[in-house]
Structure formats: C-alpha cells, structure tokens
C-alpha cells in the first residue's frame, strides 16, 4: 500500500529530516511510527499525502509514485487518505454533523450521499448522539473522534494520524487508539505517529522507530523502546 525506498528529505534550512528511509506497509496494517520530537515522524507522513516531496528516493502509494504526481492530481491522491491531527482542526462554527459533511461537500457529493455517509461515520466513532453539538461543547476525546469521522467519511483505504493523542489524557488516548485499532481491523491501513510510550507498549503492534531522521528499528509486535 505504502512503499518508501531510500527516502531522504533535506529542508531548505539544511536540516536533514529523513535519511535514507526504506519502509513497506501492507494493506490493512496498523503501524506506529515512534520517535522523539523532531525525529521525522511528521515529515514521513507528509511525504505520503504529498505535503512534501522527498529530496531523493521514491514514495509509492497504491502503486503510484507520489512525487511524480502532477499538482492537479494531488487532490485525488488525498481522497484516498484520511488524515487525523493532534489539534483536531475542526471548524468552530459548524456542528459535528456539518464538520463531517464538509469533507463530502468539497468533493462535490450530493445531498443524498451526504445523508447516507455522515451518520455511518459518526456511528463508527460512537458520536451518533452528538451530531448537533458544536466542537466547543465536546471533550477533547470527542473532538478527536469527530476528526476521525471526518477523515473516514469518504471511505479512504489509508488513515494517517499525526500524534492523535498528543492533546489527550491517558484514558482518553487509549480509547482513541482502540478505535483506530478497530478501524484497522475493518481493512483500513492505519499509520500513527506518536511518542506515547504507554499506548505503544500496550497495543503491541508494528513499531517503526525513527531517530533524527534515520530508521533504527522495525518490529512487527514491538514496544516503544528497544526490548
């Protein structure tokens, strides 16, 4: 599904964000990307949804060389990728329902499609009851669920999560990760960048460890630290 081959990223400032990273992630896999701040986790995710292009190396998504994609085709790549952020990025003047529906609106969906897909997505994240609430009326965990519902509403095969639990307390974080794990069991590939040791150690999924831009470890059922 996602394939990185000798990927390096050097920012214009000269900072080497990724250094010769090769990685393969199969369809339906759940994979943690761990490492301290500045280790290149976000950069790696940004390469996949073409927010960045590699300085050298290849990034292949679903058989397509992402860096070769013309700018006009990038939106169609992103329709196959759901993205979840640490800071939720919900629109404050829209209800939960509208926030999720917004992702369909901008893809040119019909009203009927919207009314079919939004409730399914909200049920999936367990927020069917809160559809009419505004983001500020929700807890952090609930806001993150809305963000996940929005990322999934279009049925993408891949979900990228950039520190999705960074702003949440440990219990809520665990709930969110369980939800993501459940989503991956339905066939969605989930890639989660995190530095939450507790979660990684408890879930025991594949762990890819970056240190200052270099891939130092790739364990199929790993823990946060080298065991």
């Amino acid at each position: 599904m996602i394939h990185l081959e000798g990927v390096s990223v050097v920012y214009p400032s000269g900072v080497q964000a990724l250094n010769d990273v090769s990685l393969h992630i199969g369809r339906g896999e759940f994979c943690f990307i761990v490492g301290s701040s500045g280790s290149g986790k976000s950069t790696l995710l940004q390469l996949i949804y073409r927010e960045l292009s590699p300085t050298s190396g290849r990034v292949v998504f679903d058989g397509q060389d992402v860096a070769q994609l013309p700018a006009a085709k990038v939106p169609f790549l992103r329709r196959k990728i759901g993205i979840v952020f640490q800071d939720f990025r919900l629109l404050p003047d829209m209800t939960v329902w509208e926030n999720v529906g917004f992702a369909l609106d901008v893809l040119g969906a019909t009203r009927r499609e919207k009314h079919r897909k939004v409730p399914i997505s909200l049920e999936l994240v367990g927020l069917g009851e809160k559809a009419a609430s505004f983001p500020h009326e929700l807890s952090g965990g609930e806001q993150q669920r809305v963000c996940i519902a929005r990322a999934l509403v279009n049925g993408p095969p891949v979900l990228l999560c950039d520190e999705p639990t960074g702003n949440l307390d440990p219990d809520t974080s665990w709930d969110i990760v369980e939800l993501l794990s459940h989503i991956s069991e339905t066939g969605t590939t989930v890639l989660m960048a995190t530095h939450d040791k507790y979660i990684v150690d408890r879930l025991r999924k594949r762990v890819v460890n970056l240190v200052r831009g270099t891939l130092v470890r790739d364990d199929q059922t790993g823990t946060y630290d080298v065991s």
Partner: peptide, 10 residues
C-alpha cells in the same frame, strides 16, 4: 486547509 487535506480540487 481542510479542503486541501481532504482532496478538494484547486
């Protein structure tokens, strides 16, 4: 920003 990320065309 959200439009860009969910794949709205230019």
């Amino acid at each position: 920003r959200i439009m860009q990320l969910v794949g709205a065309t230019r």
